[in-house]
């Protein structure tokens, strides 16, 4: 479809021998497995530590566990004022709202920036980028005041409403870059078929940017799940605490900490995001290559 703009030749030719072709997958697997092991060491250490009695964690240099001390999970689950289920559900609620918000609002804004012509576009685009650049620590106090005037403190609103209003400019920018990778001829074809702007967005752009939407979902899920600072600031009642806020309540730098429980609950809190990634990544590979457009 873009043939008229292309010319020239590809010069390089494969010179690889047949033997190499056979060995290659094996070599790649070995290299990847070795790299994975090195990368995962800290994670493995964490899982192992979650299965040790608290006071052995730092005194035991070996990474092998002799007996499984699942006690940490039971104790950790109920160690704080609410059962850990509560924090998991709270986090899930915040994550759900955030993902939904980001998907809808960021893709709309991104479509406008990537495909539509309008007055003030450059200015708005620059402002969008600027809004990613200010460190959170200096805006948190004014923002807190804003939300407390609205009476939103100790609700999930300060965490979710900004996402519904596309304040995560990172994702707007991400989607702009992806939409610009989609050939414009497709828009044109749809327009000739009678689609308006909304139709093009819904029928052409959205289906073609599934990888970007998957990326947004995965990142929003993970980053919101792990976000400590704003959840700490806006949620005051322990009943409203989310996982990252609760996790830190196991640790006291100057006194007794429940490392066993902390590691156990860290492992527990890793599971949802790991599952989210496992599921989400399947959509990453549903790119143009698999949507029938070639």
């Amino acid at each position: 479809m873009t043939t008229e703009t292309m010319r020239g030749t590809v010069a390089a030719r494969s010179t690889a021998g047949i033997g190499w072709t056979r060995i290659r997958p094996l070599v790649i697997h070995l290299a990847l497995a070795a790299a994975a092991l090195v990368m995962l060491y800290p994670v493995i250490w964490m899982v192992v530590s979650s299965l040790r009695p608290g006071n052995e964690i730092f005194r035991e240099p070996s990474i092998l566990v002799r007996d499984l001390h699942i006690e940490n999970y039971r104790v950790g689950w109920n160690a704080l004022t609410e059962p850990f289920t509560r924090y998991l559900l709270n986090s899930a609620a915040v994550v759900f709202g955030s993902v939904l918000g980001n998907l809808v609002s960021c893709s709309m804004a991104a479509y406008a920036f990537a495909r539509l012509e309008f007055t003030g576009k450059k200015l708005w685009f620059a402002i969008m980028l600027l809004s990613i650049m200010l460190p959170i620590h200096v805006v948190i106090v004014p923002q807190y005041i804003l939300f407390s005037q609205a009476g939103w403190i100790n609700t999930f609103l300060p965490l979710v409403v900004p996402k519904l209003l596309a304040t995560d400019a990172f994702f707007v920018f991400l989607m702009v870059q992806f939409i610009r990778g989609i050939p414009r001829e497709l828009d044109e074809a749809a327009r000739i078929d009678g689609c308006g702007r909304g139709g093009i967005f819904l029928r052409v752009i959205l289906p073609l940017m599934v990888p970007a939407l998957a990326t947004t979902t995965i990142f929003t899920f993970i980053w919101t799940w792990n976000d400590f600072f704003s959840q700490l600031i806006y949620l005051t009642d322990p009943k409203m605490y989310t996982v990252p806020v609760a996790l830190r309540a196991f640790v006291d730098a100057t006194a007794e900490s429940s490392w066993g429980s902390m590691f156990a609950m860290s492992v527990v809190s890793l599971l949802p995001i790991f599952l989210a990634f496992l599921l989400g990544q399947r959509f990453l590979i549903k790119g143009i290559a698999t949507t029938g457009i070639k």
């Binding site: 809808v104 609002s105 960021c106 709309m108 804004a109 479509y111 406008a112 920036f113 539509l116 012509e117 309008f118 007055t119 576009k121 708005w124 402002i127 969008m128 809004s131 900004p162 519904l164 209003l165 596309a166 304040t167 707007v172 702007r197 909304g198 967005f201």
Partner: peptide, 18 residues
């Protein structure tokens, strides 16, 4: 050609948040 109405409609949530 410019398409201000459609563009600002698509941008509405973002502008509101901004």
């Amino acid at each position: 050609k410019k398409d201000n109405l459609a563009a600002y409609l698509f941008l509405a949530p973002w502008l509101l948040g901004l």
